[in-house]
Design a protein around this nucleic acid. Sequence first.
DNA 1: TTGCTCTATGTCGGATCTGACATATACTGC
DNA 2: GCAGTATATGTCAGATCCGACATAGAGCAA
Lengths: 110, 110
Amino acid sequence: MRADKRKKLERAGWTVGDAGDFLGLSAEERRFVEVKLALADGLRRRREDLGLTQGEVAERLGSSQSRVAKMEAAHRTVTTDLLLKSLFRLGAGPEDVGRLLVPRPRRRAA
Amino acid sequence: MRADKRKKLERAGWTVGDAGDFLGLSAEERRFVEVKLALADGLRRRREDLGLTQGEVAERLGSSQSRVAKMEAAHRTVTTDLLLKSLFRLGAGPEDVGRLLVPRPRRRAA
DNA sequence: TTGCTCTATGTCGGATCTGACATATACTGC
DNA sequence: GCAGTATATGTCAGATCCGACATAGAGCAA
């Protein structure tokens, strides 16, 4: 697995010693984790595009800055339910979420 | 809203008196509920395509028949986390989930 | 350095979810 | 009618999550 992705997993609170340990996750667990990471990234990008701080987003969501930080980090105490609700509350639509899960095929990669 | 959809919501444990009450749900809550319904439908279709009973699926998921019934009904005690994990464990991929959320545009609707 | 802003991490009470079980309902074929 | 099978509903103890708060760290300007 790529190093940046493993780093993200570790930051998310997953215990991932090295690439080998990552194989301890079953295929479906990996897929699920990737979905969470994708939603978390989407949330962060959306916040940044809106030019908001985590605190401001927390206010909009009726939550706290610390929770928003954990959402963006795809921390293990954060569910996809929370990520989806948050994305929607920040104005995302189902298509946006779909794009996060299934990145559009590149139009002739460089 | 369509009657069959409202019926689904009621079966899912949501208190929905009539179409007017449904408007009590905010736009983002509606979007979230629709995501859940879509995932639940996807799970049921996948099970049926596999020719399995709820009990058999429960065994594969390490759960119980009653929980699977609630998953397929998008009951309020069922999270998208559970639905996603279940879909993945039944062999779905991210693209399958994406399709559930964002139905491909019809190729010339009849 | 100090001060300020933003983000990250740890913890906790109360709320919610999960699997399990019992039970109910629905639909067969007898 | 009665079995047998499949699905639905209600409840519960234990597990997990959520928002909140405190606090730590990173980055920047003066």
